[in-house]
Design a protein around this nucleic acid. Structure first.
Length: 599
RNA sequence: UGCCCGAUGGUGUAACGGUAGCACAGCAGACUCUGGAUCUGUUUGUCAUGGUUCAAAUCCAUGUCGGGCAGCCA
């Protein structure tokens, strides 16, 4: 471990995996810490992946190492390029400005090279130097780039008597495997000769056998209490086109065979995955050990995947929601996908803060979505520009302000960030306020407008309600008030206290917009908990669209800008916006102590 | 009923044989030109039973409960 001296581990988050990494470094076990994030490109990344990304990239970043982005694409029937693209976008978005320095990619088109070290065959593929300016020069790692290497490893195992070609049908394979509490039985093809196995395997590769007619299996122990050691299948025949290798192959390696070798090829030191792979670890180690490889072997560690209340996380269920049109697509803002969260206005920073905040353990936890909400509000509170918007308008007429007159009012853009400055909003004779901010017969402790009552129009002045105009059905259609201009912000009586301050939008100056109000997708904390179909607990009100009135400055808002609509919540321009027809998504509502106390 | 893993307030997470802490949620109050933010206070916890030890959330044993594993998925 010579001259390499990564930065000392910062006093950031720690957990049992970081502890292992730290002690491995102290022991000088690795020249450089290498982790990997290996999604299968068969769906979109979700917030559970964010936890894994933050763990893997975080460890790499903190230790001056690297985290390889790798497409775990060994099953041609499930994977698609569209997912490869989306995954890259999401990963880059999530780590941008935080762990870019640790992103392990490879030079475009690079393939592993085979060499001999100490008489042992080695296969290796290094990452491209970090932060290559031209992003087109690099691409993610692909397990499918290792198909040649993997095939070589398979032949190696066969030659050493560690693997054999098995002609059992899928049904018979399953039958002879036994069950967790009943040992399996040897396949009748288990003791074929090396040369016969080799010949057969080569025929498989050459396409001489139909799908499922044969497999390559590891020769381990059919009576092992660990079912994954009962001669697991290493290769299966699939005459199918692969998104990355086309029709070059008709045999494809299984996860267990491909994953450990891929880790080795890339020089991964810590291979971090979720708990369900714990029982696969002996197989991971068995394969690498029996390959007799010259470099240090990677090690697998497992942590608990993220579970969040009021949502679903499995790719299968997310795919179902998308396919059945329950939501509008993978980036529907109600989904916990990274693209959905991003479209809703959730920032990468909030996701990272959330991910590190929840910790890393082996306990199968269910995290309250309120923790996510808090992380989102905390980040947006610091950064979002404050604006006025009225979602459910009722008309106020300020009877003492002449038609056509505009009274400029200075409004603070973000009280949490003085550097964001101020803007001017115009007070006019007619303004919109929220229906909610007026009550004819208010309950006790109601601070807002009531007949005869006073309220402050924020950044403008205090108004007093003098008359309520209703339509035939008794609905309030107009509230006539008088404005006390001497209480204008900055004027003599501006210090006058009233209980309530409300937001407003000029009727003549304001613009209209569609605002999409999102709520949780499910009505139950654990959708599908008791074996019920998760689709039976969909929240019918997960999306409500309203026509809102906005202050004019919002007309030029573009995707990427975060806003707080004062007293309402955080809102984010949607990509459905058209010139003159803005659309905003509600990222998250503000906390509302009043509403809560009255619910 | 085989093997593997886990269990700390309502939720999540620290404490690595030496005072059980933090965050979220909740509750109460202060402040407020956002019923937001901020600030203050506060309710609630080591799965059980034994053992080792001056001392156990921590080590050991047994039990209980929860999760995972029998795809030619990952």
């Amino acid at each position: 471990m010579s001259d390499f001296s990564p930065p000392p581990a910062p006093a950031g988050p720690t957990d049992f995996i970081r502890d292992i990494v730290a002690s491995d470094r102290t022991a000088g076990k690795h020249a450089r810490i290498v982790t990997r994030f290996p999604p299968e490109p068969n769906g979109y990344l979700h917030i559970g992946h964010a936890k894994s990304i933050c763990l893997n990239f975080g460890i790499a970043h903190e230790n001056g190492g690297q985290c390889n982005l790798r497409m775990d694409d060994t099953n041609p029937t499930k994977e698609e390029v569209q997912y490869v693209e989306a995954i890259q976008t999401d990963v880059r978005w999530l780590i941008e400005g935080w762990a870019d320095d640790a992103l392990g990619m490879k030079p475009k088109g690079a393939q592993p090279t085979t060499t001999t070290i100490n008489g042992l065959t080695d296969i290796h593929l290094a990452a491209a130097p970090a932060l290559i300016p031209n992003a087109d020069a690099v691409e993610p790692f692909f397990a499918s780039d290792y198909f040649d290497a993997l095939y070589l490893c398979a032949e190696r195992l066969i030659e050493r008597g560690h693997a054999y070609v098995c002609d059992l049908s899928p049904a018979d394979t399953e039958r002879l495997r036994g069950s967790p509490d009943r040992p399996g039985e040897d396949s009748p093809f288990r003791s074929r000769s090396v040369s016969e196995n080799l010949a057969l395997f080569r025929e498989m590769r050459a396409g001489k056998h139909p799908d499922s007619s044969r497999t390559l299996r590891a020769r381990i122990d059919m009576t092992s209490p660990n079912v994954w050691l009962r001669d697991p299948i290493l290769y299966r025949i699939r005459h199918a086109e692969h998104h990355h290798t086309g029709n070059a192959w008709c045999i494809y390696p299984m996860y267990d065979f491909a994953h450990c070798i891929s880790d080795y090829i890339e020089g991964v030191t810590h291979s971090i995955c979720t708990l369900e792979f714990e029982v696969h670890r002996p197989l991971y180690d068995w394969i690498l050990t029996h390959l007799e490889l010259p470099r240090p072997l990677p090690h697998q560690y497992e942590f608990a995947r993220l579970n969040l209340t009021y949502t679903v996380m499995s790719k299968r269920k997310l795919l179902q929601l998308v396919k059945e049109g329950v939501v509008t697509g993978w980036d529907d803002p109600r989904l916990p996908t990274l693209s959905g969260l991003r479209r809703r206005g959730v920032t990468a920073r909030a996701l990272r803060d959330f991910s590190t905040g929840i910790g890393v353990t082996k306990y199968n936890a269910l995290t309250d979505v309120a923790v996510l909400d808090k992380a989102v509000r905390d980040d947006l509170n610091r950064t979002a520009l404050r604006r006025f918007a009225v979602l459910d308008p009722v008309r106020i007429v300020l009877t003492n302000i002449p038609e056509g007159e505009t009274i400029p009012c200075n409004a603070i853009n973000n009280p949490e960030d003085p550097a964001s400055g101020t803007r001017v909003v115009a007070l006019t004779r007619e303004v919109w306020i929220e229906q909610d901010d007026f009550m004819e017969v208010p309950p006790p402790k109601y601070f807002r407008l009531r007949p005869g009552g006073e309220v402050r129009l924020k950044y403008a002045c205090i108004i007093q309600c003098q008359e309520v105009v209703k339509d035939a059905s008794g609905k309030v259609v107009e509230i006539r008030c008088v404005a006390d201009l001497s209480t204008r912000t900055g004027e003599a009586n501006s210090g006058k206290k009233v209980k309530g301050t409300i937001h407003w939008v000029s009727a003549s100056e304001g613009i209209e917009a569609e605002v999409r109000l999102y709520d949780r997708l499910f009505t139950e904390p654990e959708p599908g908990k008791d074996g019920r179909d998760f689709l039976t607990v969909l929240n019918p009100d997960s999306l409500r669209c309203v026509r809102a009135r906005l202050e004019p400055s919002l007309g030029t808002a573009v995707v990427g800008q975060q806003f707080q609509f004062e007293r309402l919540g955080y809102f984010y321009p949607d990509l459905d916006s058209q010139p003159g027809q803005p659309v905003f998504n509600r990222t998250i509502a503000l906390k509302d102590a009043w509403a809560k106390a009255n619910s």
